[in-house]
């Protein structure tokens, strides 16, 4: 045979390689651990998380993903303070993969940390766990000087869907200096159940950033707030077609008869995504007065628009059986 060997059968006991003097040998052994036949790899990973070499620690922080044991979580929380950036990042990424809400308490112990990186990572890890205890710290996180922390804290509140955070989220959506924080807050308001959030969302339709305006137009449709119709109609004049697409979709969801004119006008816009969305919305509104405009759209250059126009016309007919 030739001078190569089946790689998966390379010699070298994994345990010995994990303790090798050469950091690169240890690092490769750590990479292999999750794929090895060893049954109980957690103790080995914990040792590697405390390795003297930063790259070995970073590799271990990646390899420990999927372990929800408190020792692993504590070790990762510790690595958020690691001197090496790569290790800190790996630890933060792995923490964000946690699924078990029983780890909420451990994470909550770290929310008093002064380091913005650590705090942001902890909030990011808390978000999918949706533990009630994260409400208070996330609310105070909204006033943190670091935008990164405020983004993650806002995210936690959106996932928690706790009525008590609607007021603070409204404030953030209207006033936070950071665009991304405002956008997340506007999206987070999507769990509201009453009109209390309407002023904040309509305010966001006039935000200086189009991404915030886009998010607001979408959230208003998700909430089906009838009081938003006039504002969404105004948003159909936004400079950005992305905002108008969302506004059109929301006007359709709201079955806003008042929007007939702006939606019909959008049927001649150069971007076909917007024409498509306007056609769908006109179908959902179901008002026969849209028929002439839709009949023109049957000759649209985009076949997708033509097809959706057919469906919209059909929808209007079945909503108005008398005709």
């Amino acid at each position: 045979m030739s001078n190569f060997q089946a790689a998966e059968s390379l010699p070298g006991d994994l345990t010995a390689r994990l303790a090798d003097a050469d950091a690169e040998v240890r690092r490769i052994a750590v990479m292999e651990l999750p794929y090895s036949d060893e049954d109980d790899i957690l103790p080995m990973l914990l040792t590697a998380l405390a390795d003297k070499d930063a790259l070995v620690r970073a590799e271990a922080a990646k390899a420990v993903e999927g372990f929800e044991e408190p020792e692993a979580v504590s070790a990762l929380l510790g690595l958020l303070h690691d001197p090496a950036e790569e290790t800190r990042r790996a630890a933060a990424d792995t923490l964000s993969e946690l699924k078990d809400d029983r780890n909420g308490d451990l994470l909550l112990q770290a929310v008093g940390d002064n380091d913005p990186f650590v705090l942001a990572a902890v909030f990011r890890a808390l978000r999918p766990l949706r533990v009630p205890g994260s409400l208070a710290p996330a609310l105070s996180g909204l006033d943190h000087p670091s935008p990164q922390v405020r983004r993650e804290a806002t995210g936690v509140l959106g996932y928690l869907k706790h009525a008590g955070s609607l007021g603070p989220l409204t404030r953030v959506a209207m006033n936070d200096p950071d665009t991304e924080v405002r956008r997340i807050a506007v999206g987070a308001l999507g769990f509201a159940t009453d009109v209390e959030v309407l002023p904040a969302l309509t305010h966001a339709l006039d935000d200086s950033s189009w991404q915030v305006r886009e998010e607001a137009a979408g959230t208003l449709g998700k909430l089906k707030l009838t009081g938003a119709v006039d504002h969404l109609i105004a948003a159909m004049g936004d400079r950005y077609w992305q905002v108008r697409v969302r506004a059109a979709r929301s006007l359709g969801r709201l079955k806003a008869v008042a929007a007939l004119e702006v939606l019909s006008a959008a049927l001649t816009h150069e971007i076909s995504n917007l024409r498509k969305e306007a056609v769908i919305a006109l179908g959902e509104v179901g008002d026969p007065r849209a028929i002439p405009a839709l009949e023109t759209a049957l000759k649209d250059p985009d076949p997708d628009v033509r097809k959706l126009t057919q469906l919209a016309l059909k929808q209007i007919q079945s909503a108005n059986p008398a005709r």
């Binding site: 001078n3 060997q5 790689a7 390379l10 390689r17 690169e24 040998v25 490769i28 990479m31």
Partner: peptide, 24 residues
């Protein structure tokens, strides 16, 4: 390349088994 230190990552992950370690 650190294959001489026991690394076989690229060889292991190739779905077509095209890579090898030159043992010399």
């Amino acid at each position: 390349c650190i294959a001489h230190k026991g690394c076989t990552v690229c060889v292991d992950v190739c779905p077509l088994d095209l890579l090898a370690i030159d043992m010399l």
